[in-house]
Structures are given as structure tokens and as C-alpha cells.
Design a protein around this nucleic acid. Structure first.
Lengths: 337, 337
DNA sequence: TTGAAAGCGCTAACAT
DNA sequence: ATGTTAGCGCTTTCAA
């Protein structure tokens, strides 16, 4: 029967059957040319491939996925694409994915656990695995998702799930020691989203390090981890009369810096400000921000590798990787007022 | 026969058949509950949906796409996720997509036409349409891709393809008038990638406006449209002895600013610098950047709407939308030296 | 080395 | 309102 499909919206994609017909072979042979080139006669393969190219054939990943379960696609979810912190992780993930011949797609969860969950369910059957960056998912949801897809977390740890996290224990200690060495005796932490695992780690680390150093530490917030979160955080911080402010991340810190400038509070003259992430922009804002740097690209690479590893070896122990952090001292921190 | 599939890598995803069996109805009934709820008895639907929820059933988009051709997914390709300019477009696209019940996935083309082409082929069968932002694709490739998928371009125009572009004619005129009013008599344009359509429009507009105003305009480059492109561009610009520099985009402009500062060239004392995009960061770099603002979120929204429109009404005339631009004057431009 | 044929999970006629 | 039955495009045994 002739191919009489009246173009269901689309002019007509070239299929395996088209190529097979044009080449005078069976569809299975064409399929093999793509999936197991070595199991096909050289001459046949040349011929088929030539015809396929001529016709502009591209395998339909959906159909392929249906049978084989593999899609050669990885999905990475981030809370906020506009936060440059994630650009580093993305770049690393992109590099590792393409090195492995996989396509990486991204989606923005809008700092929202419900959106994140929907995306995981929605994209799950269409991808070979997930990199979840700064995931807001509750543990149980996460664990359930792991049954269906290989998953690696970035800056979030949950027992039983592969993850790569920054060494916040060391990082927060570096921050506190830096501030103490400048004579600060109390600090306030301007917190991010309540569901943020790294936010919790940051605060816990700060509090412990402060206790060990005998300085006071209090937490304010939560604030939106964006520049727009700055004004509220800065105003609260000023009221607290602390001499050192540590913000949940650089976006918030930059927002704080701007608000302080607008209010005539000198940085680091009146207060010192420290951020997390060392994003692009933390170096050229004014004053340049003292911040804790993570190995973001590396984190992206390792996370993708972890996903790939899991999808190949239906896993032993999901690995936990801790990446070092490093305090970058710039202009926003100085001696206590 | 029992379902004896030994977990092909994945524990076992709940399928329509599982739900149907558990609910004691036909698969088509379950399917209808999701696709045409109104064509199913209320009681049956309640029952089926309850069971589906209990089993944790989620439709497999791949399988659905295979038959229906629709995937409820849109892909957006950007040259560089790390460029905050695209964050605005992405946010807008995200909003419009989710308002339409579509999932938006993103991919980074690394400023590379070959990568972009591969992604379009690869993702094509798996999505309902594309938003191509600042596409580097040659016209013929683009036109061919349009046969297979609805496409809307952002800041790129090709006859026969829907697009939303910024009003660079007006924008470049605003820039030139601003510089002329400050006494500048010559300017140099620090160009971006050769394949960039908006780059070409920017230079053409600048050149025409300069000619009309009787001032000199020359083009340098191409430079990488990133902060890293700054040093080379700044050095060349200094050599040119022009009093006004207009950079391809804000990322490059910020890189230029930093290099000029490092070399002891005063901005705007010695030279004025103007960028394009009004990205986050152009406001808090030092000096704050004078730049041409676009309606980025709006562009994202409109582009998604254009794609959706095309996929519904197998199209009349693909629309061209021109969005206004506006010069934001900050500290980096001043009177000619 | 190649072909025939049976699905993968779902949708959409067509029957009932 | 619901069930039956073909496929969608591809991969993958199993035979030849």
C-alpha cells in the first residue's frame, strides 16, 4: 500500500522504512547500519548510509527509546537558569555529555519542588538519566525517582543517591577564620530557600565554625537567592547591627551590596559581606565580592559521569564526591568596624 | 503471559496496560482518561485515575509521540547559556510554554552552527517545535528544518521563517545620536561572531547612522562575545585611537572595561564604551555600562507563541515581530576626550 | 550477512 | 461509554 499519510501537521519525516525501500534492503539492515555497523557487510553499509544521507534520514529518538529504553539523552534540572553559578555546572555537564555522545537538555525548575517533580516525571521516560542541581525534592520523592532513572545530585546529598557536593565544612570554616582574623566577633547569615540542602549545610557549617571560634552567629531569612532578594536581606542585616554578613549565594550578596550602597552603608567600612559561589560578576561588582569558590565545572563533569556509570552498571554503591572549596578574598571584607 | 521482563536496566515503569489491568478496563479507556476525560464516564474516570495515581503511572511521552506526533515539548537553543542576555529570553519562553501546558527544554549550541544543526536534527522528532535564539544556521539549513518542525527565531531573520527581532535600526541610531551629542566624531565597533545575524544588523545600523551623522565608524573583530573576548578587543580599540567603542554585546563590553581599567585607560574619561543587551551585571559593573536594552522576556514569550501558532494553524504567513529597543545611559559614556 | 516478524507503550479509528 | 484492533518507527530475537 502506498504511503498516503496526509502529512499530520508535518510534511513527512524520512523513516527507516523509506531508507530501506530506497536501498532495497530490510529495515533491520538499515537499523543495524546505525546501531551495529560491524554486523553489516561493508558494501551494504556504505550503500545504505549513502542513501540515508541523501534522503536526510535521522533516527527518531522516541521510537528508538520505545524499544531499547535508551535515548542517548540526559536531562539536567537547575533551580534558576539565570543564576550564573549554574552556568559552570552546565558547561561541565555539557562537556562530559558530549564527550560520551549524549545530548544534554536543560530545564529550569524555578526554585520550585513541585515543578521539579513534574519535570522529573515528565522527562523521565524520555531520557537516560538526570543531573539534579541543588534539588529541592523531598528525600522520598527523590528515592522513588531513582528507581526509574539513574540520578546524580549536585550540592545535595541524600543517602542512596549519587552526589557531588562542595566541601562546605571546610568552606564555612575558611569564611569564619577569615572574618575572625579581621576582628569580627559576630556574623549574620542571610539564608536562602528553606528547602535548599546547600543552604542548610552552609548555615550548619557557619554556626559550628563560629561556635568553635567563640563568635556569635545568627540566621536571618529566608530570602530569595537572587539580586532581588537583596533589599530585604540588607535591611534586616542593618537592623541586626552585625559587622559581618554572609549571604546564601553571590546573587543575594550582590543584591545586598547594592542595597547597602543605596543606604549609605560602607562596605567593608561599616560591614563586611561574604558570598558563596564565585560567580561571574562577583569579581566585577563594586566592591568586588569576597566569596567561597566551588569547582563548578568539575561538579558538572563528575555528575554526568556518575549518571552514565549508573546507567551502565546497575549500581553498587552510589558514589559521594566531595569537591574542595576555596575562599576568594576581594574587597567586600575588611577589618571589623 | 506474565510480565516477565527482567528489568532492562530500569526496575519497571508502570504502563497503561498495568493500569488497565488493575482497573479492569481496556487500555483505550485509560488512555482516554488522560487525553479526552470528557469521553469517559465520570465514575470510570475517577476509578482509573485513582488507580493510576496509586500505581504512580506517568504516560510515556516517547510512545505517545510515536503515534500522535505531538510531544507537548518545545526546545529552545541558545548559543551560550552563560550569557545572561539569554536568561531573559529563556524566562519569557518558559513562562509562555508553561502557560500553554508545554514543557520547555534548553540546549546550548556553544556558538557553533554545526552543533546547532546536530541538535535540531537530533531533537527534531522529539519536540513539537523550536525557538532558535540568535541562530547561526545558514539560511538553507534553516529553511529545510522548517519543513519538519515549526520554528521561531529570536534576533535572526530569514524570509519565510517566523521571527521576533529587536529594533536595531532605531537602537543603533539612538547610540550614535547619544555619542554625537557627547562630541564624539568617530567610533569603532567591536564585532562578534561572523555568523551572528544581530551582529551584522548592529554594524549595518551603526554604520548607516554614523554616515548620516557625518561621523566615522570602523569595525574591528570578530571577537568572542564573552568577557574573555575583552582583552583582544580592548587592545585593538586602544590602538585605533577612537574615542568611542561600541561592543557587540555587554559581555564583551564588560571584558573591554576590565582590560581598559587594567591598562589605565579611563572610562569615560579617555574613551566611552557602549554595549548591547542590558544584561544583569551591566548595571553593577564599574563603571556601570551604557547599553541598548531589548525586551528580552517579551521576545521569549512571543517566540513561543509563534511556534505554537504555527503548529496549530499550518501556517499562512510566518509573522515578523519587531520589538522596540531603548538606550540605557549609565556611567561608561561621557564627553569626547 | 541478511530478512521476517514480534513487539516497545500509546493513540485513534472503528465496533459494539 | 467502552472495547478491539491496527499501527507509529524502531530494535531485536530468530531463521534463513
Amino acid at each position: 500500500m502506498a504511503r498516503a499519510r496526509p502529512a499530520r501537521g508535518v510534511p513527512h519525516r524520512v523513516t527507516l522504512a523509506d531508507v530501506a525501500a530506497a536501498a532495497g534492503v530490510a529495515t533491520s539492515t538499515v537499523s543495524r547500519c546505525f546501531t551495529r555497523p560491524d554486523r553489516v557487510n561493508d558494501a551494504t553499509r556504505e550503500h545504505v548510509l549513502a542513501i540515508a544521507a541523501e534522503l536526510g534520514y535521522a533516527p527518531n529518538p522516541a521510537a528508538r527509546a520505545l524499544e531499547s529504553g535508551r535515548t542517548e539523552t540526559l536531562a539536567m534540572l537547575v533551580p534558576d537558569i539565570a543564576n550564573p553559578y549554574f552556568s559552570g555546572v552546565i558547561k561541565g555537564a555539557e562537556r562530559a555529555a558530549s564527550a560520551a555522545g549524549m545530548t544534554l537538555v536543560l530545564a529550569d525548575t524555578a526554585e520550585n519542588a513541585a515543578v521539579e517533580e513534574r519535570l522529573v516525571r515528565r522527562l523521565g521516560p524520555a531520557v537516560d538519566g538526570f543531573v539534579l542541581s541543588a534539588s529541592r525534592l523531598p528525600d522520598d520523592v527523590l528515592l522513588r525517582a531513582c528507581e526509574l532513572n539513574p540520578i546524580a545530585l549536585v550540592n545535595r546529598a541524600t543517602p542512596g543517591v549519587a552526589c557531588v557536593v562542595a566541601d562546605f565544612d571546610s568552606g564555612t570554616r575558611q569564611i569564619v577564620e577569615h572574618l575572625v582574623s579581621l576582628g569580627h566577633r559576630s556574623l549574620v547569615y542571610l539564608g536562602g530557600p528553606a528547602e535548599s540542602w546547600s543552604g542548610a549545610r552552609r548555615w550548619a557549617g557557619l554556626r559550628d565554625a563560629a561556635a568553635d571560634a567563640g563568635v556569635e552567629a545568627t540566621r536571618l531569612g529566608p530570602y530569595s537567592p537572587t539580586i532581588d532578594g537583596g533589599p530585604a536581606a540588607a535591611d534586616a542585616a542593618v537592623t541586626s547591627r552585625a559587622t559581618a554578613l554572609v549571604a546564601h549565594n553571590d546573587m543575594l550578596a550582590i543584591g545586598v551590596l547594592r542595597r547597602l550602597a543605596a543606604r549609605g552603608v560602607a562596605v567593608p567600612g561599616d560591614v563586611s559581606v561574604v558570598g558563596f559561589d564565585n560567580i561571574v560578576g562577583s569579581d566585577f561588582c563594586s566592591p568586588a565580592l569576597t566569596t567561597l569558590a566551588e569547582r563548578t565545572e568539575d561538579a558538572g563533569v563528575r555528575a554526568v559521569e556518575a549518571v552514565l556509570h549508573q546507567s551502565r552498571h546497575r549500581s553498587s554503591q552510589p558514589p559521594t564526591l566531595v569537591l574542595p572549596t576555596q575562599l576568594v578574598v576581594r574587597e567586600s571584607s575588611g577589618t571589623a568596624a
